[in-house]
Amino acid sequence: MGKKKRRPNPLGLDFNNLNFFYGIPHCHTILSTGRGTPYEALEYGKRQGLNFMIITDHNGYLYDNILDKETVITKWRFLIRSIEKFNKKNEDFVAIPGFETRSEPFGDLNILNPKTYFTGIVNNINSLLLWLIADGSAIVSINHPHKSIEKLPISPYLNEYLKTIEVGNGSPPHKYSRHDKYYYNLLDKGFKLGAINSEDNHRINFGESENLTGLIANNLDTISIIDAFKKHRTYATESRTLKLYFTINSVFMGESIDRNSFDELNFYVYAEDSKRIINTIQIISNGGKVIHEICDINLKKIKYMYQLKLNKFNSWYIIKVFLDDKKEALSSPIFIK
């Protein structure tokens, strides 16, 4: 799983020291519509074997006051104190603050790793961008997308901050749902999005389900976790033991290839699961079209190479994995520019 280190590599990802971490980037506590204090939530998630959690209570509640020992503070400040306290006591786990907000008409968004918060609904994307620029640390994730998210206008400025999309969401007592098609549709529009999976917990069951976000980093610390989100080194998995990444022409998952530099694309796919059999792997591109499929793998570990002629109309490629127990996983893309 990798050992927590204090100093992340400032030069980027060390491919000779890849570690796979698993966590929940979207969950709720007693501060809004969930149960348990933030500290209790983090303790529970750690006991379930998670490496990180991002607590994202609804922003409309965060201005309310709460009693912390003998001091009255806002719920936002209470969240920050809880996370700081937990991180100080736990060297092998990372807790990160965030909050959930509603946008009209696009749906719910998570603001991850902000310095502060805002209340109310996002009615203007440009206003949100100005807030993000002023904050300086936050990134944005799309929650449980629906048809309305397809109205979101593409913008190079928005691509700087909008980094991930939930392709899976849910935990008991709520229904688990997959959102692959919105992932594909937004990639087709030109959004640069990584794939994540969130339990979106509202009960004290953090980490009990296996629908998690896997990410690849050298170190387990806040800077490395957020960097993995920013650089699309994440994958949505329904198996907490799956390791997954791929490269094209030695370009790593989440990065971009210049279409004028190559006539052929050389894929390298790495998938490994210590508990489940890998049955099928698909290479998927624009429109959700399956470009290539490897069936009847029946292995727990595979390193697969495939060569594909460059198609000038394709702007992204992802990997989809099918495992035993009807479990699935989706990688983040490699983009063709």
Rank of each mutant, 00 (worst) to 15 (best):
I154T: 04
I154G: 13
S155L: 02
P156E: 15
P156Y: 12
P156W: 07
P156D: 10
Y157M: 08
Y157I: 11
Y157K: 08
Y157Q: 11
L158I: 13
L158E: 14
L158H: 13
N159H: 10
E160P: 01
Y161T: 02
Y161R: 05
Y161G: 02
Y161F: 14
K163S: 01
K163W: 02
K163A: 00
K163D: 00
K163L: 01
K163I: 00
K163N: 00
T164V: 07
I165C: 09
I165S: 03
I165P: 06
I165M: 10
I165R: 12
G168R: 09
G168L: 14
G168T: 04
N169T: 06
N169I: 01
N169H: 04
N169D: 04
N169M: 12
G170C: 09
G170F: 12
G170H: 09
S171F: 12
S171W: 09
P172Q: 06
P172N: 06
P172V: 09
P172W: 11
P172S: 10
P172R: 13
P173S: 07
P173C: 02
H174Y: 14
H174G: 15
H174P: 15
K175W: 13
K175Y: 09
K175A: 11
K175H: 09
K175F: 15
K175V: 05
Y176M: 10
Y176I: 00
Y176K: 10
S177M: 12
S177Y: 07
S177W: 08
R178G: 05
R178H: 10
H179P: 03
H179Q: 05
H179V: 05
D180F: 08
D180S: 08
K181E: 14
K181G: 01
K181V: 03
K181D: 14
K181M: 06
K181R: 08
Y182R: 01
Y182M: 07
Y182D: 14
Y183K: 00
Y183P: 00
Y183E: 06
Y184W: 13
Y184K: 03
Y184S: 04
Y184R: 01
Y184N: 03
N185S: 09
N185P: 02
L186T: 04
L187Y: 07
L187M: 12
L187S: 14
D188Q: 09
K189Q: 11
G190S: 12
G190I: 01
G190A: 07
G190P: 03
G190Y: 07
G190E: 06
F191H: 05
F191Y: 06
K192Q: 07
K192D: 02
L193K: 15
L193V: 04
G194R: 15
G194C: 13
A195N: 02
A195I: 00
A195M: 04
A195R: 03
A195C: 03
A195L: 02
I196P: 00
I196D: 07
I196S: 11
I196Y: 09
I196M: 10
N197T: 04
N197H: 03
N197K: 15
N197V: 09
S198L: 02
E199D: 11
E199T: 14
E199C: 15
D200T: 03
D200C: 12
N201E: 04
N201G: 05
N201C: 06
N201P: 00
